[in-house]
């Protein structure tokens, strides 16, 4: 991506693609691919699935470009598509696991999981692996809100644009997700002296 490409707005690039300069779409892919893969991998807990879904997300977005309104936020638009496709994937995966259990074949004891842990996961520290597992055990809504806030650094207003939820609902979901994770990771709520230390961080 050249300096000129980096300076171009999303809407400018979308307009260019719609005028027939298809190659410009690659600028958008390069701009968003890392964050989209990160988002999907935190939602699914699997980076290989994330890359595969991300590819479909970009194809879907390309097809939907004629329907994109320029006054809308392109970032919200792209994450909305990613969110929908990820949730569809999770539903399909859940159905597959449930169906296999009905047939008496327990593919994996971990919920919503089909494949054995990959090498990358094994390489992660034990605590990180536990955290990833706990993240997957959150409800989809809680996980979605938390991932957008913590990993994508979205504001509550931006999360509202992606999810369509109200700000109070987003606040509640994130707060409950944090409480649940704190409890399941057995994080100690002790030490008043740690307060100012945490504030400084």
């Amino acid at each position: 991506m050249t300096m000129d490409d980096a300076a171009r707005s999303d809407d400018d690039i979308v307009g260019s693609v719609l005028e027939g300069r298809t190659r410009d779409y690659e600028i958008l892919i390069r701009r968003y691919s890392q964050r989209i893969v990160l988002f999907i991998s935190r939602m699914t807990g699997d980076s290989d699935d994330a890359r595969s879904i991300a590819q479909d997300v970009f194809l879907k977005i390309y097809e939907s470009l004629p329907h994109y309104r320029r006054e809308n936020n392109f970032s919200a638009f792209i994450f909305k598509v990613a969110r929908n496709m990820t949730l569809n994937f999770l539903k399909r995966r859940q159905r597959t696991v449930l169906f296999s259990r009905l047939l008496g074949r327990d593919l994996d004891r971990a919920p919503f999981r089909q494949d054995p842990p990959r090498l990358s996961e094994l390489e992660q520290g034990e605590r990180e692996g536990e955290l990833t597992r706990q993240l997957r055990l959150l409800s989809e809504e809680q996980r979605l809100a938390l991932v957008l806030k913590v990993y994508l650094e979205f504001s509550y207003r931006q999360i509202r644009e992606v999810t369509g939820w109200s700000v109070p609902k987003i606040e509640t979901l994130i707060s409950r997700a944090k409480s649940r994770l704190k409890k399941s990771l057995r994080l100690q709520e002790s030490g008043g002296e740690a307060v100012m230390q945490a504030r400084e961080q």
């Binding site: 890392q34 955290l131 990833t132 990993y151 994080l187 709520e189 030490g191 740690a194 945490a198 504030r199």
Partner: peptide, 20 residues
């Protein structure tokens, strides 16, 4: 303040998970 510290630790641990 203990609850606040725990929230801070959780955030740090979440961010320590390496990106794909």
């Amino acid at each position: 303040s203990g609850r606040w510290a725990a929230l801070g630790e959780l955030r740090q641990r979440l961010l320590r998970v390496p990106p794909p």
